[in-house]
Amino acid sequence: MRSFSFLDYKHMRIRNKLFLLIAFIIALSLTFTILVQQYAFSIYDGQIYDKSSRVLNLSSSAIETELKRLRQLSYNLATDVSIQGWLTSLSESASDNDRLIIRQHLVDRLFSYTGSEKYLYLEMG
């Protein structure tokens, strides 16, 4: 098998020369297009990554803030003197009527918390 040389190109027919030239231009254009596309995709991926990380950072900050509010609400409920007193009275009360009154006071107090907190839901059952 012999190699292709410039002399072979010189003696080729015009149609074959034109075919080789067009094939070379197409191959060069395809290579250039692929390289530019890869470069554009890498820039786009970088921007997507950057914006996603910013959005996730903002979301995690908002979640942390809400968790702090819920922790404070839980602490307020656990340390509320009225609620703790009524819970103690409710467990020690022997009369059904007293339990009903204490339970109503307790529910009213818990309803006062539900009005200001969007995550707290009190179901009567």
Results as ranks from 00 to 15, higher is better:
Arg2Cys: 06
Ser3Glu: 13
Phe4Cys: 01
Phe6Asp: 09
Phe6Gly: 07
Phe6Tyr: 04
Asp8Met: 06
Tyr9Ser: 03
Lys10Ser: 10
Arg13Val: 13
Arg13Met: 13
Arg15Asp: 02
Arg15Val: 12
Lys17Gln: 11
Leu18Lys: 08
Leu18Trp: 09
Phe19Gln: 12
Phe19Thr: 01
Leu20Glu: 10
Leu21Val: 14
Leu21Lys: 14
Leu21Tyr: 15
Ile22Thr: 12
Ile25Arg: 04
Ile25Lys: 00
Ile25Cys: 11
Ile26Lys: 03
Ile26Gly: 10
Leu28Asn: 10
Leu28Glu: 11
Leu28Ile: 15
Ser29Phe: 03
Leu30His: 04
Thr31Gln: 10
Thr31Leu: 04
Thr33Ser: 01
Thr33Asp: 01
Ile34Val: 14
Ile34Trp: 08
Ile34Tyr: 14
Leu35Thr: 08
Ala40Pro: 05
Phe41Met: 08
Ser42Val: 12
Ser42Pro: 00
Ile43Glu: 11
Ile43Gly: 09
Ile43Ser: 07
Tyr44Glu: 04
Asp45His: 10
Gly46Thr: 12
Gln47Asn: 15
Ile48Lys: 11
Lys51Met: 07
Ser52Val: 11
Ser52Arg: 11
Ser52Gln: 12
Ser52Gly: 11
Ser53Asn: 15
Arg54Met: 06
Arg54Ile: 13
Asn57Lys: 03
Leu58Met: 08
Ser59Val: 10
Ser59Cys: 06
Ser59Gly: 08
Ser61Gly: 05
Ala62Val: 14
Ala62Ser: 12
Ile63Glu: 07
Glu66Tyr: 08
Lys68Asn: 09
Leu70Tyr: 13
Arg71Glu: 14
Tyr75Ala: 07
Leu77Gly: 00
Ala78Thr: 02
Ala78Leu: 04
Ala78Arg: 07
Thr79Arg: 10
Thr79Ala: 04
Thr79Gln: 03
Asp80Ser: 01
Val81Asn: 11
Gly85His: 13
Ser89Arg: 13
Ser89Pro: 02
Leu90Thr: 13
Ser91Trp: 06
Ser91His: 14
Ser91Asp: 14
Glu92Asn: 07
Ser95Met: 05
Ser95Phe: 05
Asp96Asn: 09
Asn97Leu: 05
Arg99Leu: 02
Leu100Phe: 02
Ile102Trp: 00
Ile102Val: 08
His105Ser: 14
His105Lys: 14
Leu106Lys: 02
Leu106Met: 00
Asp108Ser: 13
Phe111Lys: 15
Ser116Tyr: 05
Tyr121Thr: 15
Leu122Trp: 04
Glu123Thr: 03
Met124Arg: 09
